Amino acid sequence: MVDVVFSKKACGLVSVSLKGHAESVDEGYDLVCSAVSAISQTMLIGILEVLKFQVDYSIDDGFLSFSLEKLSHKNIKDCQVLMETMLLGLKSVETSYGEYINVKVEEV
């Protein structure tokens, strides 16, 4: 199971953490894991390479997290289109494959 937790403040989505493996099929053929990885890594690349914002992040096997909280209020707002798009993409995967992924948003 992939557990995804977004943190939300008044200014918008400020962090996300993804943990686990979908294990929907054999390793290397798992479309759910591939979709989650592609969506989340593309999002992080957008922040780092397109917007050129430096954010705290960590990537490991079955784990990805990043936080926008050290950015200025304006830069956090600039990231919201990407963050909301990531949330919608992962929610879409959850709608189709809910037994392998859980997405939630926590107000902090």
Results as ranks from 00 to 15, higher is better:
Val5Leu: 08
Val5Pro: 01
Lys8Gly: 07
Cys11Glu: 15
Cys11Gly: 03
Gly12Cys: 06
Gly12Met: 02
Leu13Asn: 06
Ser17Met: 10
Glu23Gln: 13
Glu23Cys: 12
Asp26Glu: 15
Glu27His: 12
Gly28Trp: 07
Gly28Ile: 08
Tyr29Thr: 09
Tyr29Ile: 00
Tyr29Ser: 15
Leu31Met: 12
Val32Gln: 05
Val32Lys: 08
Val32Ile: 00
Cys33Val: 03
Ser34Ile: 09
Ser34Cys: 15
Val36Pro: 01
Ala38His: 05
Ile39His: 07
Ile39Pro: 09
Ile39Asn: 06
Ser40Ala: 10
Met43Leu: 07
Met43His: 06
Ile47Phe: 08
Ile47Met: 03
Leu48Met: 11
Leu48Asp: 07
Glu49Met: 13
Glu49Cys: 12
Glu49Ala: 13
Glu49Tyr: 02
Leu51Phe: 03
Lys52Ile: 00
Phe53Ser: 00
Phe53Lys: 03
Phe53Val: 12
Gln54Met: 12
Gln54Lys: 15
Tyr57Pro: 05
Ser58Cys: 13
Asp60Ser: 14
Phe63Cys: 00
Phe63Met: 04
Phe63Thr: 07
Leu64Asn: 10
Ser65Trp: 00
Ser65Gly: 10
Ser67Asn: 04
Leu68Thr: 06
Leu68Met: 04
Lys70Met: 05
His73Ser: 14
His73Ile: 10
Lys74Tyr: 13
Lys74Phe: 13
Asn75Arg: 11
Asn75Ile: 00
Asn75Cys: 08
Lys77His: 13
Gln80Ala: 01
Leu82Pro: 09
Leu82Phe: 07
Leu82Val: 02
Met83Cys: 02
Met83Ile: 06
Glu84Tyr: 11
Glu84Gly: 01
Met86Gly: 09
Leu87Val: 06
Leu88Ile: 09
Ser92Glu: 13
Val93Gln: 00
Val93Ser: 00
Val93Asn: 03
Glu94Gln: 14
Glu94Asp: 08
Glu94Cys: 01
Thr95Gln: 15
Ser96Glu: 15
Gly98Trp: 07
Gly98Phe: 09
Gly98His: 05
Gly98Ile: 08
Tyr100Arg: 11
Tyr100Ile: 05
Ile101Val: 13
Ile101Met: 04
Lys104Ile: 11
Glu106Arg: 12
Glu107Trp: 06
Val108Tyr: 11
